[in-house]
Each structure stands twice: as structure tokens, then as C-alpha cells.
Design a protein around this nucleic acid. Structure first.
Lengths: 188, 188
DNA sequence: GTAAACATGTAACAAGTTACATGATTGC
DNA sequence: GCAATCATGTAACTTGTTACATGTTTAC
């Protein structure tokens, strides 16, 4: 928890709501898609989080009655909530301790059969490569839709910057996987 | 939890014990230093974990009485524990969902003052660069101590491979941070 | 004398995952 | 008919973090 008991998930939610008012369901969808590769949460985390934010005066909701489905709760950020995210966003990002199972397995790879280990890393590399390609497609879409990255307005640039991190991360990861699998193969 | 209720932390611990018998305190030290950048745990997690592993027959301990300090418990991996790690290590690594606060802040950077945001990312970049340099020093030490990476025996290669991931990760991260801060500056 | 290293544990809390629970509408 | 989408929640559980708890030895 950070200031006034708002967790990082809380700030992520506030950040989304700073752009547009959303239902819990919509927040969930965005946590899966654009935001998902650097922060995600299931609905079982989001609904209680929204309730907590409301209790803290960061958001308010109004019910939109629907036929058949439960009432939709549209959450809107308050002035208090907005100033809280704005303050939070420029504070030093704390890099949470990385926990990476694949790197752990590389470190312990001497315990496994080299051929099997090589295959495992080859497959892992493929997965990260595919993910990178998906991000590159989105990047291409942004360029075609929004034009020159140099002239992006702030919100689009922010989106582009996050995506760029995704591309770099996956590329480096895929390269490393391929390197590991090749070395393991040639030694087996 | 994976097979027979062993968590990833459990396997990390078993992996360490596969190389040498260790006390809980020693496991903690290794979780901080060589293993720390891709998997870490405090002693409050390690002691109960060792007890759980022992209850599951994966490790056994014998007490080494000491003067003044509490008895040292030296944990040794069992045949069962060894075959469990060996099986686990070549299974597909599940990439746990990434949660990266800095990338989230980049995505929400449009909410902050550009100058402040740029400074934040510049500082973050410096941190990752320093970390990269620390890893590079270790790499240099390995080369000087162990010779040509090509001829590393399996255990040393495994160590080297994990370190290499650390270098690549930090390099990519630092580059991205610098790129973000430069763009934010030139736009502010 | 003071801090760090050695050595082991427990308790309280926060965060995240999986499963349980309900129910209409829409597209195949 | 069957799965997916829309829409909201709760409960149980696992994992990880921070704080509490104790006590000696060694180096500065």
C-alpha cells in the first residue's frame, strides 16, 4: 500500500479511470488487454478494489439499470483520486523483486537432461518471439493510425512507450532463450 | 504449488540443496546473492519452507550443536527430493504474469508533469545501468576464473546463463528508461 | 559501546489466484 | 443446444512482506 492505503492495483485502476469512466467489467477488460502485459488482475481483485477506492473517496459510482444483467456500476474518478494518481505517477517507481521461473530453471539446468532442457528453452523462446510479434503488430497499427511517433500527443506517447517496453522485453527474452537452447544442444 | 505440493520456492531451495547441504541461514544467503536477481525469499519464508519440504520427504536435517547460537540445522536433499527437482527443471517454465510498476507509470505518464516524469525515468535508468555493471563485473570474474565460456562444465554454464539473462534484462531496461526520459524531456 | 553477522523461528498482514455462485442475451 | 459475452460479487487458499522475538560472538 502507498499513500492513504492505495495499492499499485488501485493506482492502475485510478489511471484507467482518469481517462474514462468505466464499469468494473470494463476495467477488467483493460487489465487483460492494453494494460495486461505489465499489470493484470482478475475480476475477483478488481471489484473489491473499486469498493475500497470508493470508500477512500477516490472514485464514485452511479448505477445504470439494465435488463436481465445486474445493474452496471459506472465508476468515475473524483478530484481527490485524480490528484492522488498524478502525485503517485512521478514518484520513483519501486522495482519489485523479479521472480522469473525460466531463469531459475536455467540456473538449475545442470540438473536436467541437456536435450530436454534445450527443447524447453527453444519452445519458451518461440513463445516470447510470438508475443513480440503481436506487440510489433500493435506498434505498426499505431504508426499507421497515429502517424509519426515523434508527434504523438502525450497520451498516445504514453501508450506507445509502454508497448515499446513490451517489445524490448520480449525480444531480449527470446534471444536469451535461443542462446541458452543452442548452447545446451551443442554440449549435449 | 506443483507436484506433491512443492512450490517454486520449494524447487529453488531443492536446487540449491542439490549442489550442497545447507542450513536455512545459508539458503537465505544464497537467495540474496547469486540466486537473488531472479528468485528471492526472506528467512521468514525459507524456514517454514524447509520444514514443509522435510514433512514431504524431500529433505532431511541433522542438528549441529553450537556454542551460544541456536543449533544449526544442516539440510540434505533426499533421493526423492533430487528426482523431484530433476523432473521439474525440464518441464515448461510457466511465465508468471509480469507486474512492472515502471511500465505502468510510463503508460500513465501523461498524467504527470513531463519534466518530473523524465527525471524519474532518468534516475531509474541509472539504477538499472548500475545493476547491469555489477552483473558484468561478475561475468568478467567468471571468465577470468573459469576461462572460456565455451568450455564451462554444466554447472558453471548454468550459473553463467542465469547471469547473462540478468545482464540482458538490465541493459534492455536501462536503454528503455533512457529513451523514455529523452522523449519526455524533448516534449516538455 | 555499537553494529553486523550468525542462527532460528512465529505472527500479522497484504496481494494475488482459483473456485464458487448467479443469470440473461447473443451468436454459432 | 452450447459456448461466449455481459455483469457482479464472495470465499478459500497460496504466496510474499514486514514486524515481532531472542541471544551470542566478532569486528570496529
Amino acid at each position: 500500500m502507498g499513500r492513504a492505503g492505495v495499492s499499485t492495483l488501485g493506482f492502475a485502476t485510478l489511471g484507467l479511470l482518469a481517462g474514462e469512466s468505466l464499469s468494473g467489467y470494463d476495467v477488467k477488460l483493460r487489465m487483460a488487454e492494453p494494460v495486461g502485459f505489465f499489470w493484470q488482475a482478475g475480476h475477483s481483485q478488481i471489484y473489491p478494489e473499486l469498493a475500497k477506492l470508493e470508500a477512500g473517496g477516490m472514485v464514485v459510482h452511479n448505477d445504470v439499470p439494465q435488463s436481465g444483467k445486474p445493474d452496471k456500476k459506472i465508476y468515475e474518478i473524483t478530484a481527490e483520486g485524480l490528484s492522488a494518481v498524478k502525485e503517485w505517477v512521478s514518484e520513483p517507481a519501486k522495482s519489485a523483486p523479479t521472480r522469473d521461473e525460466a531463469t531459475l530453471k536455467a540456473y538449475l539446468s545442470w540438473l536436467g537432461e541437456p536435450g530436454e532442457m534445450a527443447a524447453m528453452f527453444r519452445e519458451l523462446g518461440r513463445r516470447h518471439e510470438k508475443q513480440m510479434e503481436r506487440y510489433l503488430e500493435t506498434e505498426a497499427w499505431m504508426r499507421s493510425e497515429w502517424g509519426e511517433p515523434k508527434r504523438f500527443e502525450r497520451r498516445r506517447f504514453a501508450n506507445y512507450a509502454a508497448l515499446k517496453r513490451g517489445v524490448g522485453f520480449e525480444r531480449e527474452y527470446a534471444q536469451w532463450c535461443r542462446w541458452v537452447s543452442e548452447k545446451l544442444e551443442s554440449s549435449g
